[in-house]
Design a protein around this nucleic acid. Sequence first.
DNA 1: ACAAAAGTGTTAGACATACACCCATGA
DNA 2: TCATGGGTGTATGTCTAACACTTTTGT
Lengths: 228, 228
Amino acid sequence: MKVINHRANKLKVIYGPAVAVDAVLFTLDQGQLKVLLIKINNGPYQNKWALPGGLVQLNETLDEAAKRVLFQKTNIGDIHLEQLYTFGDLKRDTRGRVISVAYFALVSHPNNYKVKTTPYYSEITWQPIKNLPLMAFDHRKIIEDALERLKAKLEYTNIVYSLLPKEFTLTDLQKTYEIILGKKLDKRNFRKKMIFSSLIEKTGKKRKGEPHRPARLYRFAERKLKLI
Amino acid sequence: MKVINHRANKLKVIYGPAVAVDAVLFTLDQGQLKVLLIKINNGPYQNKWALPGGLVQLNETLDEAAKRVLFQKTNIGDIHLEQLYTFGDLKRDTRGRVISVAYFALVSHPNNYKVKTTPYYSEITWQPIKNLPLMAFDHRKIIEDALERLKAKLEYTNIVYSLLPKEFTLTDLQKTYEIILGKKLDKRNFRKKMIFSSLIEKTGKKRKGEPHRPARLYRFAERKLKLI
DNA sequence: ACAAAAGTGTTAGACATACACCCATGA
DNA sequence: TCATGGGTGTATGTCTAACACTTTTGT
């Protein structure tokens, strides 16, 4: 691999890795944590699944590249992506030396987005994290790291807001935590903490049409990332 | 900038950023937190200071590149480097598009290493973090981010072990924390926590030759990174 | 004997954990 | 009226924070 680089106004050829971005996109669906995967249609990784990703262009920052790639490959836009880690093993892409700057983000529900396919990526799907298919590159590792980061951030940020709709019940919120953390939480303690944290506030409304006592609806006080 | 990349056994030219690594190396000296800087000798950043860094080669991982660059530029080897973040702004290097994967590490005392200069880097120095000179690239920002990460890691890891000699007193240890965190800590509470954490253990020895009550010497139970 | 740093314990408040019953509604 | 999930309080243990005096040594 060769990098041709303008330095001191001369065209200078240097050899170096190519730079890609990959996005780990989580959502909740049917009581499961899922991740967005794309099926590769040809080349050495044919029929394997991968994260949406692509090469970084010269005229875009890494953050911009992550957003662009995600939008181009999946039609998902306008979400907050956070840089996760940069993966640089020699053999992570058998076709050549490529390092990947991985990003992760959460989206509220798969049905809110119309994903699309491309000639190179023939299928696109939300795959349960517990049941990942055969993955291309080191993408399984990237997903595992992203999940670990997500769990950690649950504890000290309001990051879940992007997984939930505008209005939700405390039980919805608790289920979200339980699914991601993979463990049961105590209802009374959870509610105490959430209400006291003042990350959420009552809407005054109740959820109707279910054959039980109606649950109060809450909203997030602010729909942007905050430390608790 | 152009990246020539073997894909599917054909030489394919693609345009993309070059990839560099930069290392933020911290130490304690004379009661101050210092960072290793290098003076750039020519080009648009002449006479500015920078972190030791360099381009990533095709045959090395990012971690290996960080180690190699640090060793070549400063003669410092055999330390644990941790990836910090990847910086990818368009104009961070005026000479061309370069993204930088930043690493950080701690070393015990500057005198333990014989740093050296190169034609491109004319001077090398440990600079107090409170008093940084005019810096090249976005290296001031990288140092600030590294410092923030270091403070955070103090709270939940034994990372300070690499700043201290084999044997040290509890007062040494407390001063180390106070310098990095930039605040005073309560002596009794600090000792209680440290001793109870079982990260450190008594050597049975005492420091001699000072005109006061001799302090007990401690060592780290394990000299590798652990969560508390 | 004195100067200087080493060393030590207790109390109060904040926070996490464990735990069981009544309430409101639709069917 | 019953089935179902919604909603609530208290007691206990753990961790953090505030706080001042005695001990040991070299000079």
